[in-house]
Amino acid sequence: MSSTKIKVLCVDDSALIRDLLTEIINSQPDMQVVAVASDPIMARDLIKQYNPDVLTLDVEMPRMDGLDFLERLMRLRPMPVLMVSSLTQSGSEVTLRALELGALDFVAKPSIGIRRGMIDYTEEIAEKIRAAAHSRPRRAPHRRDPPPTRLKAPMISSEKLLIIGASTGGTEAIRQVLEPLPASSPGILITQHMPGGFTRSFADRLDRLSQVSVKEAEEGERVLPGHAYIAPGDQHLKLARSGANYVVKLDDGPPVNRHRPSVDVLFHSAAEYAGRNAIGVILTGMGKDGAAGLLEMRNAGAPTIAQDEASCVVFGMPREAIALGGACEIMALDEIPARMMALAAASGRAQRV
């Protein structure tokens, strides 16, 4: 990206939202709204005219369904798209479908008239637009992509755990990691940066696609093999012990690295309570959340993996973890599931560095 400003096109049927997004984006020194559109039909012409770097797109649009527009766009002219979603059950499901179709990330639609942390909201939008401008747009998947090859189930100790953290681009990366896993995989704890109201829909979607059982984590529940537990969107997820069992702890404490849930919080707890029995994995995402925690896991004897730059949507979090020395191995996303299972099966064997 050159020193010129990031060009943003805002597509939303609400004039109020268009005005608010324009004000927020234009308040940043490194970005500018070059045009706005009230529907996808108008947006098509403006994309050709202005060649924007980033598109913000309302989930629910008139004249053409927002998902239909997004799917066509990502097939014909892939570009970074940031969805603007309502905080509703239907809004979260449509947003997750948009991420599957190639949207990079999303922000919640602001509540007009409620000054709910507008400074934080402004910073969130600006940060996500910057990440989008430096990301790798993904083409929409083919409708008939073959199902993933399921991994065989080796004998694995019930003490083993898979600990995964991700941010921007992570919803699809986590899906690609979980889908090949056998039903007998180790217990899995996952922190994905996501606001409250979205994580239950995310867990339900992963549960439908995976052989492992996936759910939103609940306070005090036992961590079982063949199950994956997603951090709720407004709470930190921690690993703890109750006697001989691993259990889930949820924490309403302040954000860490500006995030709640935070990947570092999960990784630190895994280092403390699971040590070498955990396998730590850091996936695509912006920022540095998880880097220090992955290093702590490695220092506690856990094998650790960072997703490589070529397969990341945004290489920020893995890059920071690698620079800090937290990653034992660096590999492409499609190699990670098999490697996690091999490491989990290699009980007592020396980790590869």
Rank of each mutant, 00 (worst) to 15 (best):
P186G: 05
E272N: 13
C312D: 06
G293K: 12
V248F: 13
S242G: 12
G301L: 09
T4I: 08
T284V: 07
L73Y: 04
S201Q: 15
D289H: 03
I41K: 15
Y273V: 03
L295S: 08
E216H: 03
V314D: 00
V8D: 05
G348R: 01
N299G: 07
T168N: 02
M341W: 03
S213V: 06
E159H: 09
I114M: 15
Q307D: 02
R77N: 12
A270T: 05
A344Y: 10
R276N: 09
G170S: 07
K5Q: 13
A332H: 07
R130S: 04
G233K: 02
V223Q: 09
M155K: 15
A240I: 11
E172L: 06
E124N: 09
A133Q: 02
R144D: 14
D207Y: 10
L82Y: 13
I6Q: 08
V281P: 00
G113S: 14
A103C: 00
P225D: 06
P180W: 03
V281G: 00
F202N: 09
V34K: 04
A327N: 14
T168V: 10
A346V: 01
Y229A: 07
S347Q: 12
P254Q: 12
A133I: 05
I129E: 03
L46C: 04
Q307H: 08
S213H: 12
R63F: 04
R352N: 13
L162N: 01
E179S: 11
K160V: 03
S213E: 08
T284P: 03
Q235D: 08
S210H: 06
V263D: 07
P232H: 14
R150Q: 15
A291D: 09
G326S: 08
M155W: 12
V84Q: 03
E218Q: 15
E335S: 14
V11Y: 01
P261G: 08
S201W: 05
R138T: 04
R75I: 10
D58M: 02
G226M: 11
V33H: 09
R150F: 10
K5R: 15
H142E: 14
M31W: 06
M83N: 03
T284A: 12
G243K: 04
T168A: 03
A15S: 11
Q89E: 11
G170R: 01
T122F: 10
M61C: 13
L104G: 05
D45M: 10
V59H: 05
S213M: 08
A350M: 12
M64Y: 01
E329W: 11
G275Q: 09
M331R: 13
S90Y: 05
T4V: 13
A270Y: 02
R258A: 04
R276C: 05
T284M: 04
Y229M: 03
G301E: 14
S167H: 03
L162M: 12
A203E: 07
I336F: 00
G287V: 07
M155Q: 13
T168F: 01
N245M: 12
Q32C: 13
L21S: 03
L57Y: 00
S167F: 01
M1E: 12
A35E: 08
